[in-house]
């Protein structure tokens, strides 16, 4: 078994894919922390679905399949989706969940229409565009990974440089505004980072599952710490770890898709965190509960004993 894995690691093609998936997990895990703290976890899902029409239009206009162009298209579509959501919640009595649902399905519907249009128009070179729905990590090549490397480094660096600002905006936007931070700009910036993370993620794991890379590692990390810095690092590590495990497992068996395995690895890490997290985990809570009950009973016994004497 171990030899199998080592053999996979030596294969240059698998190396590329593994590095790509790990970088992806790392950067989306970190961005996901801010999204989670801002209670915008499902925004990643919405942005991923909304990216589809953007990608299709980018392809229709240029006829090229370049990840950079797709990123621009998806970014513009993501910005349109964000505006749509904020308009719906501001100008009607609908709440944000319904607004997100409307924008998500509506944009995805438009995307599907465009996608079938492209497929029926019969222009060559369109094959593989539908791979964006489910993602295909196995088709990643060196240049894709290099793009991912640059993007992940950019995201990591941005998180590090803007750490103080993003932290303040995530915890207390009102206070941040009072201190004179450009809150709206930082909001949009965070959304922009999410769009980038989603777009590079879509290629590897697909539209439906890319949300998991933003949500699951961040929530898992939350179980282990109360400090944002530590949480970011942990979420990055969890994301990278799930990417590595997903790639290894999918390479070791035929017919195993990388994306879903990566998501399952992340879900497994979440289950472990849910159970074993110190102080917030279910086991720790249970122990704490038992300890409290024992102490309480002991106290009551100590307090009750004299009263019984009096009664007797």
């Amino acid at each position: 078994m171990l030899n199998d894995f080592l053999a996979i690691l030596r294969d240059p093609n698998a190396q590329w894919i593994m590095i790509g998936c790990m970088l992806l997990g790392l950067s989306s895990g970190m961005i996901g922390c801010f999204a989670y703290l801002r209670k915008q976890s499902l925004m990643g899902d919405t942005l991923a679905h909304a990216a589809l029409p953007g990608i299709c239009i980018a392809f229709m206009l240029t006829g090229a399949k370049s990840i950079l162009l797709f990123m621009v298209g998806a970014g513009l579509a993501g910005i349109a989706a964000t505006f749509g959501i904020s308009w719906i919640t501001r100008y009607s009595k609908l709440k944000s969940d319904a607004a997100m649902g409307i924008v998500l399905t509506g944009f995805f519907g438009i995307g599907i229409v465009l996608l079938t249009q492209i497929q029926h128009s019969g222009s060559g070179n369109q094959s593989g565009l539908d791979k964006f729905l489910f993602g295909q990590a196995a088709s990643m090549i060196g240049s894709d990974v290099r793009t991912m490397l640059i993007v992940s480094l950019f995201l990591t660096l941005a998180c590090w440089l803007l750490f103080k600002e993003l932290k303040l905006v995530s915890f207390d936007p009102g206070f941040a505004r009072g201190l004179g931070y450009p809150v709206v700009f930082l909001d949009q910036l965070l959304m922009f980072f999410m769009v980038i993370a989603v777009v590079i993620g879509i290629q590897a794991v697909g539209v439906v599952l890319v949300a998991a890379l933003l949500i699951t590692p961040a929530v898992s990390a939350r179980y282990w710490t109360d400090r944002l810095g530590v949480m970011l690092v942990l979420a990055g590590v969890f994301g990278a770890l799930s990417g590595a495990v997903g790639t290894l497992l999918s390479a070791s068996a035929p017919n195993m898709p990388t994306g879903p395995l990566t998501v399952l690895a992340a879900a497994l890490l979440f289950s472990i965190s849910l159970l074993a997290g110190p102080s917030k985990g279910l086991i720790a809570k249970r122990l704490q509960h038992l300890r409290a009950r024992r102490e309480h009973l002991a106290e009551r016994r100590a307090g009750a004993a004299p009263s019984r004497e009096v009664r007797g």
Binding site: Y36, K39, Q40, S41, L42, G44, D45, D97, F134, V208, L209, A211, A212, L214, I215, T216, A218, V219, M256, P257, G259, P260, L261, V263, L264, A267, F270
Partner: peptide, 19 residues
């Protein structure tokens, strides 16, 4: 948080289905 738990559950189950 409720939206994060929705996200975790449906992506994990969808992944199981795809696999």
């Amino acid at each position: 948080q409720s939206d994060a738990s929705i996200g975790i559950v449906f992506t994990a189950l969808f992944a199981v289905g795809v696999i």
